[in-house]
Each structure stands twice: as structure tokens, then as C-alpha cells.
């Protein structure tokens, strides 16, 4: 029988161990992630009722994270889209303009404000301009049981710790498409209402 050199055997053994380790770590990572169930969205926010929805259009820009997406409907009004995504890779820290409209999304510095929740800066409200259309989005990050904060990069250490321990931190987005008839103040009020209700739901852990 043909034999390979002792050095070759050592390298082959090392690679085999790496292969087993890779499979084991991948499986255990999946198990740890799945053991923490996703926050269920509130069934109703004001007059708005929940139904399943689609993830943001350019979700590949943040490596297709584990997420839930839903929509809130209220009569003939445009639905409010909501997405909770777990930060699983460094790409999960990307700003919303990179995935919410398309990869060419952009925000003018004049079209971005920070909204408060319990008198603390909590949400970032912005007008994202894409190639095909524009959306108004409220974006924040939050761990179950924790307080919301506007951007993942505001607390990078916390996000990296969550990545290492696989504890969930969600990047949350609630957005509505922008039409020529959209009234800015009304949209802002609506999204603030949604952000407050959703942040409270995440804090309570239900």
C-alpha cells in the first residue's frame, strides 16, 4: 500500500481535525442561535394590524441575516414594513441605506434626525434615496431586554461581544415608501409610534 511521508500525514491529520472542528462549531453555533427564539411582533399597533412581509430589497449586502419581516396594514394606507435582523456577521453593522432601498441608497446629512425614546437618543430617522424609489426609515439596534440605540456602530463593542457569544442583538427597521403626497410630519409621527411600540416589545422580550 502506498504511504505518504510523516509530514504529509501530520498535515492531513491537522486538516481533518480542522474539518471536524469547523463542522462542530458551525452546528453548535446554529444550535445556540436557534435556542434563542425571535421576538414576536406586536399583533396590533394602534389601528395597524400585523401580517407577514418581505425583507429589505438589498438584504444580501448584510449577508442574509437571521431575521423576521412583517408588515402592518391599516385600511388603504401604505403598509409599514418592519424587519428585525440578528447581527451575525460584521456586515450586520452596515447602515440602513446600504440595504433598505438598494445598494446605491444614500442619505443626505440634512435628511437624518435622531428620535428619542424615554428621553434618550434611541432611533435614527432618515430619508433614504434609492435608484428606483425613496423610503423613510426609522432604524435602531436593541438587545432583548435592553434599551434601543440609533446605530450599531454607536456600541461596536457590544455588537462584537454579541457576535462572539451569539447572543441576539437586533438591527430593527421600520419603513414606508415615499410618495410625492407623503406628509413628512405625519410619516415621522407614524414611524415614531411604531419604533416606540416595537422597542417596548423587544425590551419586554415578547
Amino acid at each position: 500500500m502506498r504511504q505518504i511521508t510523516p509530514l504529509g500525514r501530520q498535515i492531513a491529520l491537522l486538516l481533518a481535525v480542522l474539518l471536524i472542528l469547523e463542522g462542530g462549531l458551525y452546528a453548535s453555533g446554529k444550535l445556540v442561535s436557534r435556542s434563542t427564539p425571535f421576538i414576536a411582533p406586536p399583533t396590533q399597533i394602534g389601528d395597524w394590524k400585523v401580517s407577514p412581509g418581505d425583507p429589505p430589497p438589498a438584504d444580501n449586502q448584510r449577508d442574509y441575516p437571521r431575521q423576521i419581516s412583517f408588515e402592518y396594514h391599516n385600511g388603504n394606507q401604505d403598509p409599514v414594513h418592519v424587519d428585525f435582523a440578528q447581527i451575525q456577521t460584521i456586515n450586520g453593522l452596515r447602515a440602513p441605506q446600504k440595504y433598505i432601498a438598494d445598494s446605491d441608497g444614500r442619505i443626505s446629512p440634512l435628511n437624518m434626525v435622531t428620535l428619542k425614546h424615554d428621553d434618550k437618543p434611541a432611533f435614527s430617522l432618515s430619508l433614504v434615496q434609492g435608484v428606483e424609489g425613496d423610503v423613510i426609515v426609522v432604524h435602531w439596534c436593541q438587545a432583548p431586554g435592553g434599551d434601543p440605540y440609533p446605530m450599531a456602530r454607536d456600541k461596536t463593542g457590544l455588537a462584537l461581544k454579541a457576535l462572539a457569544t451569539r447572543k441576539p442583538i437586533y438591527t430593527c427597521d421600520a419603513w414606508i415608501p415615499l410618495h410625492p403626497t407623503t406628509v413628512g410630519a405625519r410619516a415621522r409621527g407614524l414611524l415614531q409610534q411604531f419604533a416606540d411600540a416595537l422597542a417596548d416589545a423587544i425590551k419586554k422580550g415578547s
Binding site: L14, L18, L21, E22, L25, Y26, G29, D63, Q88, T89, I90, N91, L163, A164
Partner: peptide, 14 residues
């Protein structure tokens, strides 16, 4: 190997 092990855990492309 010291880089590979955390890389397999994070499954981060970089």
C-alpha cells in the same frame, strides 16, 4: 489555526 478556529465560529467572510 489560531485564526481559523474563531473564523469557523464567527463564520465571517473576512
Amino acid at each position: 489555526i489560531l485564526v481559523d478556529i474563531p473564523a469557523f465560529w464567527f463564520r465571517d467572510a473576512t
